[in-house]
Design a protein around this nucleic acid. Structure first.
Lengths: 240, 240
DNA sequence: GCAAAAGTGTTACGCTTACACCCATGG
DNA sequence: CCATGGGTGTAAGCGTAACACTTTTGC
């Protein structure tokens, strides 16, 4: 009969072929107006010296999510970070080293001097997603897919909470959107739209690091942000 | 050092643990106003007699997409069907039979008498997603996740082409949306919105199977449909 | 005082919503 | 002739898009 349909053949568990399973993490950070992704320079052959995402094999005693979180923690020291499965990369020939399936997981983190230093002590670097150098295997595709996912997300759901520091200015938030979409937005309409969503709380402080006048700092209203994350909206600051 | 980081240790390929990898297919069909999912009654222990999605282990020489398409073909005889990866189910304890990771893949097919018969000869049945019986393992969750994905998709991207026959009426399309969201829509607004998208082509024929007057048949304008599939829109026939 | 970034309002347009009746036909 | 489902229009309200100048302040 249909040989690998496991419903029909419980004993096929033993006959089935096991496969190496890995996770690869596409870790995005927003650093002073530039969207970056975390990568390594491989130190072993093959592809020694080439850029690579950071990953790990999935162990017997962990789920893929747990493996991805483990990797993220090992490299950034961070826990409780936004992380979401992207997709499976399973081409038979994707890794010349061995038949290996990889689950792409992307994460959004808010960059601070602290965790920038930490990643660097682990030999990782933050690469701008604009003019990204070539990455090994299908890692280039993983970054492209993760970016597309992020752009789609941003059109219909709020983003920013995960990538920005707790306190941020509206110009910073706008520059995040502009960097992500590689477009410029009208400041008046951008503010209007965002403020109308009622998910921003204006603080009394100003941030004067990027202008003499200073820009008001905001925080996300966590509840409203999450409501919108579930409900979705149409963030149409662009025509098509 | 960080033991399973494979960038740092090429020889870890050998040490790493292989895992059973499966695909499970959530196959949706729209049958006379009812959204259904394809399931089997397990014929072996454990869980003999329980409902189960159809799946298969992934072989050494195939990708997960190929495995899913193989399963779909084996059970429905159909090729070139809309199929998309849902997510990975990888809890260590999800399958008491063995440590096994499963990639959920959902498919949308247009039901005809032909492929309804075919699936039945394979022992599969079409279950309404309303009042779905319990499914084995995490298959219930898979169906719930796939439905949520489909609903989200339908809010911002066109659906229908994959689930409806080539020629369909607007009331049929509306009933698809109503069934998916378990809501009723205003017919005038529904038509207006859909026709304004310019993705429907009205034919000269009428379908008289569900009314004496008969409803005009339409086809999707394939190009426009795909444009909208990429661009997205805000299908807001519901408030929140 | 000037350069550089932050902040602000209005109008036109298009899409969304709410809502009720006539049409065509088979029986 | 009537029951059944198919098909139509309009007005009010809301969100989007386009557009240019004033404010603040460090230097």
């Amino acid at each position: 009969m249909h040989n690998p349909l496991y419903q029909l053949a419980q004993n096929k568990y033993d006959a089935a072929q096991k496969i190496l399973v890995a996770v690869d993490c596409i870790i995005f950070g927003f650093d002073d107006g530039v969207l970056k992704v975390l990568a390594f320079k491989r130190k072993v052959e093959p592809f020694c010296g080439s850029w690579s995402l950071i990953g790990s094999f999935v162990a017997e005693n962990e789920s893929t999510d747990e493996a991805a979180k483990r990797v993220l923690f090992e490299i950034t020291g961070l826990k409780n970070i936004f992380m979401e499965e992207l997709k499976t990369y399973s081409s038979v020939t994707r890794d010349p080293g061995a038949r290996c399936i990889s689950i792409g997981q992307y994460a959004l983190i808010s960059l601070s001097k602290k965790n920038k230093k930490l990643t660097e002590t682990h030999g990782a670097e933050w690469l701008s997603i604009i003019d990204l150098p070539e990455l090994v295997l299908d890692h280039q595709q993983m970054v492209a897919d993760a970016l597309e996912r992020l752009r789609n997300k941003a059109r219909f759901y709020p983003i920013g909470l995960e990538l920005l520091p707790k306190k941020f200015t509206i110009p910073q938030l706008q520059s995040l959107y502009e960097e992500l979409f590689q477009l410029l937005f009208d400041t008046r309409n951008f503010r209007k739209k965002l403020l109308s969503l009622n998910m921003l709380i204006q603080l009394d402080e100003k941030d004067k690091t990027s202008s003499k006048k200073g820009a008001y700092l905001y925080e996300f209203d966590y509840d409203k942000y999450n409501t919108l994350k579930n409900k979705g909206f149409n963030f149409s600051l662009f025509k098509s």
